[in-house]
Amino acid sequence: MRASLLFVLVCVAVLVVGARADTPEELESLVRKVKEYAQKATAMAQTAFSMVQESEAAQQARRWLADNTDQAKQRLAQLKEQLADLWKQALAP
């Protein structure tokens, strides 16, 4: 929520300053500053995401998902076999 609010505020500020820019040089300077800010924000977000991905909790979650996915696949295969057997029994005269 805060990130989206910050983004909206930056966009509004850019529009206000752009509307008040008297010369093309001021507008170019503003565009350059916005690009720099966006690059810094992107770098910070990438750092945060990589820290989350490398965290112990994320690694444990990935292991848990992998283990439980295998168990779910095994149970699904067992259910398919049981349903196939029931189907054969129901069709048998």
Rank of each mutant, 00 (worst) to 15 (best):
R32H: 11
L65W: 07
M51V: 04
L86C: 04
L5R: 14
L79E: 15
P24K: 08
D85A: 15
A72C: 09
L76R: 13
A77N: 12
V8Y: 00
A57I: 06
K80Q: 15
A21P: 02
T23Y: 02
Q46P: 00
A90D: 08
C11P: 00
K33L: 08
L27M: 07
Q89M: 07
L86R: 06
L6Q: 11
A38N: 01
V14R: 03
R2H: 09
K33D: 15
F7E: 13
A45P: 04
A90L: 12
A19P: 00
K40V: 06
T69V: 07
V10G: 07
L86V: 00
S29C: 10
V52Q: 02
V34T: 06
L5V: 06
R75T: 03
A90C: 06
E28Y: 14
D22P: 02
Q82P: 02
V34Y: 03
S55Q: 03
D85G: 00
T47S: 15
Q39V: 09
L91R: 11
V52C: 03
E36K: 12
T69A: 13
A61L: 10
S55A: 05
K35N: 06
A21D: 09
T42S: 15
A92F: 13
A57K: 08
A48C: 05
E28S: 08
T47F: 07
K80D: 14
K33T: 09
